[in-house]
Design a protein around this nucleic acid. Structure first.
Lengths: 260, 260
DNA sequence: GAATTCGGTTGCGCCATATGGAACATGAGT
DNA sequence: ACTCATGTTCCATATGGCGCAACCGAATTC
């Protein structure tokens, strides 16, 4: 296992639920000896990738990462277009909206607009989830060929819930539907009780694809409201697609209002 | 040179002015052969630390860093207290305010409040600068002993301008003044034409120190306005210090209005 | 169209880095 | 004083990473 692979593995141990890490925890979670973990964490601290929690031997994310992450290109014309449309959709519906990009087999939240609805779903920026089990994820996976989708999931799927696609065939079938109708709905998949409806857009010139969605408590949003959300998202996607000359949306027939 | 040191060196090549990097550029900037640079960047991409700019062989900051940087503890009770006071100072004066922390011999901006003044200085979040040549930096360095300050600058100072401290003795003298009066002014130091006035606060229980400042175009802010800014900052620092039981401020006599 | 230049990649031998077991150090709890 | 958990260091060993040389493909120049 290379040093960089170890380093990345350490960074991936951190999460919203685990903002600190001890040497012993790192050794256990990575399955390596404590001496290896101790040296690795110490070396990462020396380079600014980690720092010690003040007054303790525990480790947390270092300043270098805070600094260079600002330079991550989480802004582009496409992202700004999606962000602007999403902000307006959030205003109109009250539901929280997210812009996500594909990262290997996951989607990563890069923009978020809080809704105004009293009951809402909140996923933080930087959060990742298996793409196949989210609306945004499937919206973006639909932009790939079946072969590319299979290649991303060589290790197979691990469905987080019965509502998510249970195997590759089910996933590919779901993606075929997304390609046909242009939007994607996920209910009770990555997060129980949560529904999302998503669309995707791509800038072919810059080889850039993203998904954006509105999320809501599944039980609180009836079918009529879901159709409204879907229509708003599709409308937004079409406007963006026209701007960036995204051929995907030209191939999607306008839906009749009751089409599921 | 260790792999992690090389990795960090690559990450440090990125900046607001250099958001992309080619193999050849990396080799030249790091002084290593192109084969080494090629393999290093490729390995970092494979771990998510970097990614390729779509459609090119060039590299940019990877998604993993965007993701884990969210977990950087750039929020704490102390930071929130400083942030709140700073927001109010920004509102009252119109000048841009920054909260920074020390990172080795640099300061790193972790919070920023844009002013409303038509002419203003803007430094992005995550930006770093040599602590000894900034107001925030010296405010925080003043919390260290002279020995600790010397240890941070073993390689000597490289003053960015004639207005900055030119050597260690000048720096230590400037820090002695900060310890005596509690605030620090820097004019034309890190950035020509820019002035800043800063104070620091520390939470002794959590071993945490930060500086916060207001920045302004030096030529546009007369002495009377500077004294007002200073008084506001000192007042804010004293309120925070009272909250977190910071003994530093108890040792600083209240200043007469004309004290420099 | 051929030659040259540039950016990036690969093969391969070598060695400096990284590893992990064992022993040790430190602090907390009893 | 003893036990236990956490973290560190020593040391022998393994190998990941390095850098030279050669190569590849695309773009540029003549």
């Amino acid at each position: 296992m290379s040093t960089l692979a170890n380093c990345a593995a350490v960074l991936r141990l951190f999460s919203a639920e685990r903002r600190q890490l001890s040497v012993t925890e790192a050794a256990a979670l990575l399955g390596i000896p404590k001496s290896s973990a101790s040296r690795l964490l110490k070396a990462m601290r020396e380079e600014g990738l980690l720092r010690n929690v003040a007054g303790t031997p525990r480790y947390e994310i270092g300043n270098l990462l805070f600094e260079v992450a600002r330079l991550h290109r989480s802004s582009s014309d496409l992202i700004e277009l999606a962000d602007r449309e999403l902000r307006e959709l959030t205003r109109q519906t009250g539901h929280t909206g997210y812009v996500s990009i594909l990262d290997r087999a996951d989607v990563l939240v890069i923009r978020m607009h809080r809704g105004t609805h009293p009951l809402q779903v909140v996923t933080p920026l930087g959060a990742r989830a298996p793409a196949f089990a989210t609306a945004n994820g499937r919206a973006v996976l639909a932009r790939l060929t079946d072969a590319e989708v299979r290649a991303l999931h060589r290790g197979g799927l691990r469905p987080p819930s019965p509502a998510a696609p249970q195997d590759m065939e089910a996933l590919l079938e779901a993606l075929a539907t997304v390609r046909r109708v242009g939007h994607c709905t996920a209910i009770d998949e990555a997060i129980p009780g949560v529904g999302s409806i998503a669309v995707s857009v791509a800038d072919p010139e810059r080889h850039e694809t993203l998904g954006f969605c509105l999320s809501f408590p599944a039980a609180a949003v009836p079918g009529r409201e879901r159709r409204r959300i879907r229509a708003l998202l599709v409308g937004a996607a079409r406007r963006i697609a026209a701007r960036v000359d995204d051929p995907f949306w030209r191939g999607i027939a306008p839906q009749l209002p009751d089409a599921a």
